[in-house]
């Protein structure tokens, strides 16, 4: 069946802006460092959508279409951050977390999270956001790409220009670091 193209008029497009800016912005803000960056990404996603409106096939909802454009914009943002030698900084090192024998180093062995309480989900999101902020851009890019590219490892490796082996090592290191950061926050919180 041929794709049914539907020409989007400005008035209809403006309705989309009013209907979806809030959700797109909320999504973007949790996925980049600065609020201003999130706003720029949402705006550039709308501009790209307007300029590419002839490619909009009516079968997918405007919301789905706008989100897919925004996800591409955010992925571009992290691809640039990943390749930027200035923010590259420290290379991921896991010597802190594992001993020479490959076992968890003392003091770094994952233990169960003693979680409870009705505000748990909200609290976890706050801890995650704080820990993502502490993660160097280079590592965060590796983590963010996983969800922006819907867990397509081959595509991610292409975007970042690295081998699969390299990617597994980097995401593993970033994740070990992220997990420990969250654990530390939970432990501190439980002592309060």
């Amino acid at each position: 069946m041929p794709i049914a193209y539907h020409t989007v008029e400005k008035r209809e497009f403006n309705e989309w802006v009013h209907a979806h800016t809030g959700d797109l912005l909320r999504y973007a803000k949790t996925r980049v460092r600065e609020e201003a960056e999130a706003e720029d990404l949402v705006q550039s996603a709308f501009v790209a959508a307007w300029e590419g409106r002839k490619k909009y096939a009516q079968q997918s909802s405007p919301r789905t279409w706008l989100f897919s454009i925004l996800k591409n914009k955010i992925a571009d943002h992290w691809r640039k951050a990943y390749r930027d030698p200035v923010v590259h900084g420290q290379e991921p090192v896991d010597a802190d977390f594992f001993g020479d024998n490959g076992r968890w180093a003392p003091g770094h062995i994952p233990a169960e999270w003693g979680l409870g309480g009705p505000d748990q989900a909200e609290q976890m999101h706050r801890f995650l956001a704080d820990c993502l902020r502490l993660l160097p851009s280079h590592w965060r890019a590796v983590v963010e790409m996983k969800f922006l590219k819907d867990k397509d490892a081959e595509l991610i490796c292409q975007e970042l220009g690295i081998s699969a082996t390299n990617y597994w090592q980097q995401i593993h290191r970033a994740k070990v670091r992220l997990r420990e950061c969250i654990s530390t926050k939970i432990t501190k919180d439980n002592h309060h």
């Binding site: 400005k10 497009f13 403006n14 802006v17 009013h18 800016t21 809030g22 959700d23 912005l25 909320r26 999504y27 973007a28 803000k29 949790t30 996925r31 706003e39 949402v42 705006q43 709308f46 501009v47 307007w50 976890m124 999101h125 995650l128 956001a129 983590v143 996983k146 969800f147 994740k175 992220l178 997990r179 969250i182």
Partner: peptide
């Protein structure tokens, strides 16, 4: 953690974004 990462920013409660919407419409 993966679940939390995936869920980020998908809740529906929103702050008003009127000025931002006007900015986008002006840009277009």
């Amino acid at each position: 953690i993966d679940l939390l990462l995936e869920q980020r920013g998908t809740e529906t409660a929103l702050r008003p974004t009127g000025p931002m919407e006007e900015r986008i419409i002006a840009a277009i």
